[in-house]
Design a binder for these strands. Sequence first.
DNA 1: GCGAGTTACTAACGCGCGTTAATCATACAA
DNA 2: TTGTATGATTAACGCGCGTTAGTAACTCGC
Lengths: 345, 345
Amino acid sequence: MGSKSKRITSQDVANLAGVSRTTVSFVLNNVEGFQISPETRQKVLDAAAQLGYVPDSAAQTLASRRARAIGLVMTRSPHHIASDSFLPQIISGLLKVTKTQNLRLMIEQVDAAHQSQAYLELARAKRIDGMILLTPRMDDEALVTLETAEIPAVLMGHLPGSNLYSVDVDNRAAAEQAVRYLLSLGHRRIACITNAPASYTAAPQRVQGYLDALTSAGIEPNPALIRYADFDPESGYERMKSLLQGDEPFTAVFVASDNVAIGAKSAIREAGLRVPDDVSMMGFDDIPWSRYSDPPLSTVHLPAEALAQQACVMLLDLIQGQLPPTKHLNLETELIVRKSCRALA
Amino acid sequence: MGSKSKRITSQDVANLAGVSRTTVSFVLNNVEGFQISPETRQKVLDAAAQLGYVPDSAAQTLASRRARAIGLVMTRSPHHIASDSFLPQIISGLLKVTKTQNLRLMIEQVDAAHQSQAYLELARAKRIDGMILLTPRMDDEALVTLETAEIPAVLMGHLPGSNLYSVDVDNRAAAEQAVRYLLSLGHRRIACITNAPASYTAAPQRVQGYLDALTSAGIEPNPALIRYADFDPESGYERMKSLLQGDEPFTAVFVASDNVAIGAKSAIREAGLRVPDDVSMMGFDDIPWSRYSDPPLSTVHLPAEALAQQACVMLLDLIQGQLPPTKHLNLETELIVRKSCRALA
DNA sequence: GCGAGTTACTAACGCGCGTTAATCATACAA
DNA sequence: TTGTATGATTAACGCGCGTTAGTAACTCGC
């Protein structure tokens, strides 16, 4: 029984229903402005159901100039993607939105080296209608490419001087709030480990918040207490070891990424010290692990899933040719006090 | 200067190069069996580069019947996706392979309720050439649909009685090894918390390994010491509380998922007990967090990224019409001894 | 009985590309 | 010259669909 399994096209549906292909298209797409009698409509729907007709998306895209898909593009290396503790939340947020709009989600990883080229190809290949850029670190060329390429795009994160739509939190203010909390507990010598290298904009922003908090408390920031980590726990472990081996004493540390904090805490333990007894620790991000760590990590809640959803909503606006209400949307963060910081006597 | 920005088609390239569209196609696709003079070839390449030509993927797909994309389909709810600690590794693994093959990766989430329908639509819409199914829990109908739908598919995980290609680890043997390790330390009363509900095949398999280890050590398994968790730390926290409140004493626990173990450990701590002093804990999966937890968690290493890569390689074979060397590929696990288990006096 | 309007539908083109079958030019042997 | 092999290129069709411009039939007012 060599079922030849011919592809079922809208022509087949038309034949079975005894109408034209055009009518089938009108009915299945609910095209307004054309009158179809209820009986005809039903005949078409029945025929389509009976044949199990599913439109060919390539043909649809080609004819309509719409891919009905968006892309999540990441400039990070596969290694960093593997240890990105936010990715699941972001994907979950995007899926929630795309699902309701019957859109598809594509994941793209582009090498930082040829991102400019890559953005152009993504735009021109027309496989996606728009894209969401994750924690980008872009050179000027790539930025210009992206802005002139006529493809809707929304940034998750912020890029100074960029004209692109974006969704983010106020990293500086949130970091300042976190460090102020440490100050309020009486800490004066506060170290800082960033979430990422300085070229990723969120890192310097969070450092700025740290500096601002210190300065406005009348404390001279000490550069020897600052380290730049690289996303993963491993780097947190290294930077904390470096801090502990340094000459500058500190009673608290602000780690601008919970994921990095995981490693940092491990280094503290390894040095025979304890959190919060010997070192108070303040995180940032509030990844799912934080509330279950020992001790539960005080941190700043980053609404990752909501950010993704908002970015997606903005992108859909852009795709449909509407201007989103705001160009740079900032969501609220929240200080989460758990048990990793103690008050100084 | 209202740059109209007409789409650049292969016709434009042909015109500029002074050849036909066919020749352009032959050159750009490196079609063999047709002779193109080196000068013509160069002219075409130059013209394409000068215009910044990028083929329209929808048109390519329509004409060639190949989408040059694969799908990662997950049957889990968005909520579970958000807390899936493996997703980044899996995506990273898939991206590594798709990147080298110039394929795209789509993420699909299908509701368990209408998965059968969903698989069919994915297959028929032809937006992807094949799919990778993540930790599926399928009813028979969906399985049949999938096997008869003529779309290449590879399972990550195992489904008893399924004819689909799959990639997995030997969950039973790995769990048995983990529990044997606890037994070797002198533990006799060993509790078990699963990674997932029983309907996800890996869960009962790991429980079976746990039971086998006990039985072959001459210990009668105690059903009152077994709990079924639900992927996330929260569920681990609940199940451990339930165990601690039960009447059955235990000196060790085998938690068949590090992610669940995060929550379980938190419950132990909350009860005023300590790992490993009061309760030894053995995990499963070896997520990035495990080696940095306090104490570092002994566990079974699951090669998630390698699994994804292998699944992808098998899928590519299937798409190209070649039969992969084995139908059910099993990768090796490894017992990772850290510091969460202590020997009983 | 006749144009004007309305309702219900369809013919036919184009989206941009891959690919087959055919064409044209050239060379070379008989 | 004629025929044949072969090297280089192209005309033309089809993939499956969205969509515009158009047609046919059927009212309705006068």
